[in-house]
Simulated assay, not measured.
Amino acid sequence: MAEKDLAGRKALVTGSATGLGRSIALKLAERGADLIINCTRSLSEAEETVAECNKLGAQTQLVAADVSTEEGCRKLADAASGWGRLDILVNNAGITRHAQDHSDLDALTRQDFLDTYAVNVAGPFLLMQACKPLLEKAYEESGRASAVLNVSSIAGVTGIGSSVAYAATKGALNTMTLSLARALAPAIRINAVCPGFIGTRWFKDRLNSDQYERMEAGVAKATPLGVASGPDDIADSAVFFLTDASRHVTGETLLVDAGMHLGYAPLSAR
């Protein structure tokens, strides 16, 4: 049974219907936080996540909203305003455009870049903009800096990944983490987690079961720790940034990739 060290805290996790966002939300609920679960289209999965959070004792609400728009971010902030404050914000929602051959410059269009930036970079900024007063209010009431976590990627550090556009957005998100951590302290502390491979539907929806198993085995073989991470593995590290254990940490970018960055060859090159 997890310690209820986040009891009474209010959290918003974007893109939390499935995958890593869902795992982070469940771990926050287990530790006592109340939650806003967010999705754009995955309503049935989001409802399942809400139900699981409720079973863990959290007061949970579901808000369908597109974080790439000012309207969507305002909708999420308005939902959080019912609490009067926001202690935790996780910018997890993200998209990609798959073009794994980075030398094929014709594989991506201008619109691919704009769409990916809209969700992966503009989205976290717009949501921070909308939620800043609530995050500052939590600091005023508690004397404890509110915690923001940006879910980035190894792609933003090494330039590998599903596409050049995706890697570029995650690099931009890492830089924005530094800029805002400096600018918004001491009321708000902002960190980023950079996963490597995560076994989620991003891959599972594009591959049959045999292809996915081969891919997972290949990833495990390529990492120094010899494992292929799942959402819970990353979420355990991510939640550190949302608790008092990291109360003196801001502007940090943490690679959680089983050592992949130490020597990784793209899957297509093996």
Rank of each mutant, 00 (worst) to 15 (best):
residue 109 T to E: 10
residue 257 D to M: 04
residue 104 D to W: 06
residue 253 T to S: 13
residue 259 G to K: 03
residue 196 G to K: 03
residue 217 A to K: 15
residue 2 A to T: 14
residue 157 V to H: 04
residue 30 E to Y: 02
residue 34 D to M: 07
residue 2 A to M: 14
residue 255 L to N: 12
residue 54 N to W: 10
residue 134 L to A: 09
residue 204 K to L: 00
residue 63 V to T: 12
residue 52 E to K: 15
residue 99 A to G: 11
residue 62 L to S: 07
residue 186 P to S: 12
residue 220 A to T: 10
residue 12 L to D: 06
residue 159 G to P: 08
residue 8 G to P: 07
residue 87 D to T: 02
residue 207 L to F: 14
residue 64 A to M: 14
residue 247 R to N: 05
residue 234 I to H: 05
residue 3 E to I: 12
residue 174 N to G: 08
residue 15 G to K: 03
residue 39 C to S: 14
residue 211 Q to V: 00
residue 117 Y to D: 01
residue 15 G to R: 03
residue 204 K to E: 00
residue 18 T to K: 15
residue 221 K to C: 00
residue 98 H to D: 12
residue 151 V to F: 04
residue 92 N to F: 05
residue 196 G to A: 02
residue 9 R to D: 02
residue 3 E to R: 14
residue 49 T to C: 11
residue 193 V to K: 02
residue 82 G to A: 12
residue 211 Q to M: 13
residue 33 A to S: 12
residue 51 A to K: 15
residue 68 S to H: 06
residue 124 P to T: 04
residue 260 M to T: 00
residue 133 P to I: 00
residue 213 E to Y: 02
residue 182 R to T: 13
residue 133 P to H: 09
residue 172 A to L: 04
residue 50 V to P: 01
residue 68 S to Y: 03
residue 118 A to P: 03
residue 228 A to I: 02
residue 64 A to L: 14
residue 207 L to M: 15
residue 149 L to V: 05
